[in-house]
């Protein structure tokens, strides 16, 4: 474990917590893409499938973190699609999730480390995570704005994988550890946040709200 990966995981946890708090406190999921949250839940379930296959006692923080990610993302989807369904902005959350899932699944079958069920599921979850934020960014571009709390969520979510890139550089240099698929997908994922990062740093940090030219 290194500092970049630690802060990456903490940033990821923070993102999940910020979103849950936003929805729970405001009792509304306006401005939140339900599809992105569904895609994240699929990512966690397919990536941590080993938890279900051979359940081992929660002997380390990693298992606990995996369970937290899965349960928090499923609970977030429950809040969006059931409890606060009336506030879900379905009209603007209109990016076709199939256009993300099918290519990720296809690519996972073509480019993977080993043609093995668990490995392909892991690869699929990595590819899907790289593009899972697109419905959320699409929704913001459609509505033309993002609540400040949603911007903080996106910043934390984007920072998590950016910090993981630093972690991969660190591990390559000190442990000569390379996981090419995760690295390439992680770089693509972080690039997708670039324009949002620019808006966040130039606006939200100064207390302004993100309003996109509609």
């Amino acid at each position: 474990m290194n500092i970049f990966r630690l802060f990456g995981d903490l940033s990821h946890l923070a993102a999940i917590a910020i979103l849950l708090l936003k929805i729970w406190k405001t009792r509304s999921c306006a401005g939140v893409s339900g599809k992105t949250q569904l895609l994240f839940a699929v990512c966690f379930i397919t990536r941590y499938i080993d938890l279900f296959l051979h359940f081992v006692s929660l002997y380390n923080t990693e298992k606990v973190m995996k369970l937290i990610y899965i349960s928090a993302s499923v609970f977030t989807c429950y809040l969006i699609f059931f409890k606060f369904k009336a506030t879900y902005d379905g009209n603007h959350d209109s990016m076709r999730a199939e256009f993300l899932i099918v290519p990720a699944a296809g690519l996972a079958c073509l480019i993977n480390t080993k043609f093995d069920a668990i490995e392909i599921l892991w690869t699929f979850s990595i590819y899907l995570e790289a593009v899972a934020i697109l419905p959320q960014l699409f929704l913001i571009s459609k509505t033309g704005e993002a609540e400040t709390i949603t911007s903080h969520y996106l910043f934390a979510q984007g920072s998590y994988r950016a910090l993981y890139i630093l972690n991969w550089i660190y591990r390559y240099h000190y442990e000569s550890h390379v996981d090419t698929i995760a690295i390439v997908a992680g770089v693509v994922q972080t690039i997708l946040y670039c324009d949002f990062f620019y808006l966040y740093i130039t606006k939200v940090v100064k207390g302004q709200k993100i309003v996109l030219p509609a």
Binding site: M65, K66, T113, K114, Y164, D179
Partner: peptide, 10 residues
């Protein structure tokens, strides 16, 4: 068979 890479990250 070659070992399946252990993806030891979350």
């Amino acid at each position: 068979p070659e070992p399946i890479p252990d993806h030891d990250e979350l």
